[in-house]
Design a protein around this nucleic acid. Structure first.
Lengths: 197, 197
DNA sequence: GAACAAGTAGACCATTCGGTATATTTCCAC
DNA sequence: GTGGAAATATACCGAATGGTCTACTTGTTC
């Protein structure tokens, strides 16, 4: 069971990072927002870097739980579940303070994607893990729906998914959101049609 | 004609920003990399912020020139030009040091997408302008190709475009790139088929 | 009530940041 | 040659950074 102070630190950091980015937020801001002493932060997390990673990992865990629960509750058929993923995306993106994909933003701030050594930044590693999980989940759903080439469809839907968030983060655009969801439907249908041949 | 030193500063800043992000790069690094005196930078650009914006604007201008030239040379038909846009994307993304979409990264680092007042950060404004231009260009190409609902197709292709870069920035994935380009082809064909009815 | 872990405030550290000021040097046009 | 613009090096500024340390106050549990 995590300490109450630890939770408050994570809450404050998550909100601040989502609003202003990671590098732009100082430790002091997090402390003030959380109402927690400096020492406590450095006892709970060894460094700012560890705090960032902890925020990303909690975000990842919560996103998985929330989204899978939503999708499983919203739809009963495998095909409906694929659609529901994008309904969940719509809910996120349409929120007035939608921060974009925090994992993409972390990857944008922390180090190059291809490093010389294999020592990629831990924050980037969290982003990679998140992305991989989403891809795998979509692959599973596509497979259950019985489409032709589930992996390919999953990658296409994942790209639409990421693109929608990237687009909304630059400038929210309802038409683009609708169009992307329509595109997802078309791709799913095409995959089902190909399997029916 | 821009001063030689100004160009060297833009070159160095562009490379450093692409590799490490904007906030993570200090003025001093830019100066050292460019081999230019501190004073000169602040005479050419009033502040770091202005330097960032100048880098983004030059990047935007060059991208337009390079990509339109590539597309116009590569294809003769309107339909072929739409496809060629994604061939250009492939060339970019497959480059070993592909930094992701620098405009998306700028938007990620600078300020929330929805501000209370209408005073959005100038770096974000550059990103918005770039995104809008790409959308409009795709709309024009889709219109010339004679598809049904050119704007909708343009938004869909734009989302695939952004998603591909976002995906590659987190972790390069050749299969995802191929799948996204296939998806683009399918969407274009569907738009043409709908128009033929 | 004493031990003990957890949290507090706040001083302190070296470093770096973006930005300014000064004084000097380079170089080309006239 | 000489004037003047452009670029140079470098010292300096205040502020903020991430992180450490000490000393004090809780609250809980034997």
């Amino acid at each position: 069971m995590p300490s109450a102070k630890r939770t408050e630190l994570l809450d404050a950091a998550e909100q601040l990072f989502a609003t202003h980015g990671f590098g732009a937020v100082g430790i002091q801001q997090v402390l003030q927002e959380a109402g927690v002493a400096r020492r406590t932060l450095y006892l709970q997390f060894g460094s700012k870097q560890d705090l960032v990673v902890a925020v990303l990992e909690r975000l990842d865990r919560r996103w998985r739980e929330r989204t899978t629960a939503y999708v499983n509750q919203e739809a009963t058929t495998a095909r409906g579940r694929l659609t529901a993923v994008f309904a969940a995306l719509r809910d996120d993106v349409e929120r007035p303070d939608f921060p974009g994909c925090v994992f993409a933003r972390a990857a944008a701030e922390y180090g190059p994607a291809r490093s010389r050594g294999d020592d990629l930044h831990p924050a980037r590693a969290a982003a990679v893990a998140h992305q991989a999980w989403v891809r795998d989940w979509l692959t599973r759903l596509a497979d259950e729906a019985g489409v032709d080439q589930p992996r390919t469809l999953a990658l296409q839907l994942g790209t639409l998914f990421d693109g929608t968030m990237a687009c909304a983060q630059v400038k929210p655009c309802p038409q683009a959101l609708d169009a992307a969801i329509d595109a997802a439907e078309m791709l799913i249908d095409a995959g089902l049609a190909a399997a029916a041949l």
